[in-house]
């Protein structure tokens, strides 16, 4: 445990260095935006990793909280005229709170039933934002979301947004790393392996599930709010069930129970998604970019079968085996 912890710390500091150094090296604004997107997805993935990988509770509707954060930030600043920094904070807190309260009925369920319920949650959320067009803009989306500004400093360029997003992403990684390596993290892992045994030792399993779910929802809300403030326009398709599946794929690639694997998983899926969208019709006549979901599904299956601990852990194991054989 001690070694994994320091390895994780090392990974975080390495990541901090890369994050700071990257923008001057990349001149292309689009590429900066793509890396920003990875930061946003990292916040989602690391939360999902806490819920699924550590506490062992399947969530197939995590994009719901991403969406709640985005729409909350949009509504609070564009409709209610709150300053955007306040909208960001409130949207984050609100999403965490909603996660907590949604968790109360949902965590009465276990295993497949829980997975179905979270799936249903995402479907319901999509329906609501599509149908309540007066408030959310419906299928055509919500436009003119003010950019983030703090004390007169406006985050109005891709590079500025990049820095604030990655600052927050690193904060969520830091928090998650600390939580995992603590009494709380041990309790979560105990619940994952044997809920009866954890309970018998005095761990209030239900409360821990609710709190970790709320924390992950809060991370997702923060990510969604930043997303809305980065591109100023949101629409239901960014938060539907397919996005939830992508998030699970990212978490699985990074290693379900791996905090810093989340960054890797998010990056892999974002880059892969770009690649597939650009090349899909070359590979398959008449295929559109949206069919990327087929590829993600396939990848998810392959990983679950061959590398259930994720590509990072699985890859290391493979390397070790190759070295042994030589």
């Amino acid at each position: 445990m001690k070694t994994r912890f320091s390895l994780g710390q090392l990974a975080v500091w390495g990541l901090v260095a890369v994050v700071i150094a990257l923008p001057p090296l990349v001149k292309n604004n689009y590429q900066i935006f793509v890396v920003t997107l990875i930061g946003l997805y990292t916040m989602l993935t690391v939360g999902l990793s806490l819920v699924m990988g550590f506490a062992g509770q399947v969530s197939l509707g995590h994009a719901t909280f991403y969406g709640i954060g985005a729409y909350a930030a949009a509504l609070l600043s564009a409709m209610f005229g709150l300053p955007s920094w306040l909208a960001l904070i409130l949207a984050t807190a609100l999403t965490g709170l909603i996660g907590f309260f949604i968790g109360i009925p949902i965590f009465r369920l276990r295993g497949h039933y829980l997975a179905m319920a979270t799936l249903g949650l995402n479907v319901i959320f999509s329906l609501i934002i599509k149908n309540e067009a007066d408030i959310t803009g419906g299928p055509s989306g919500f436009a003119h979301i003010p950019p983030l500004s703090v004390g007169g400093f406006v985050f109005d360029s891709d590079t500025k947004m990049y820095y604030i997003v990655w600052f927050m992403a690193l904060a969520t990684l830091f928090i998650s790393m600390n939580v995992v390596n603590s009494r709380v993290g041990r309790a979560l892992r105990a619940i994952h392996t044997s809920e009866v045994a954890a309970e018998a030792l005095g761990v209030d399993a239900n409360t821990y599930k609710l709190r970790v779910f709320a924390l992950a929802a809060g991370f997702a809300g923060l990510s969604g709010a930043l997303y809305a403030q980065a591109i100023h326009f949101i629409s239901p398709s960014s938060f539907d069930i397919l996005v939830s599946v992508e998030l699970v794929t990212m978490t699985a690639i990074g290693g379900l129970a791996s905090v810093w694997g989340s960054v890797f998983g998010a990056a892999a899926v974002v880059f892969l998604g770009q690649f597939i969208r650009d090349r899909m019709n070359e590979l398959l006549e008449g295929a559109s970019g949206e069919q990327e979901i087929i590829v993600f599904g396939l990848i998810l299956v392959v990983i679950m079968v061959f590398m259930p601990e994720g590509v990072t852990a699985g890859g290391m194991k493979l390397l070790r085996r190759l070295r042994m054989e030589r």
Binding site: M1, R183, R186, A187, R189, A190, T193, S194, V196, A197, A198, A200, L201, G202, V203
Partner: peptide, 19 residues
Amino acid sequence: LQIFGSMSALENVMVGCHL
């Protein structure tokens, strides 16, 4: 047995200290 298999023996006992 309901041991927490993926944790070390020590971590198992540390969960016992939860309360």
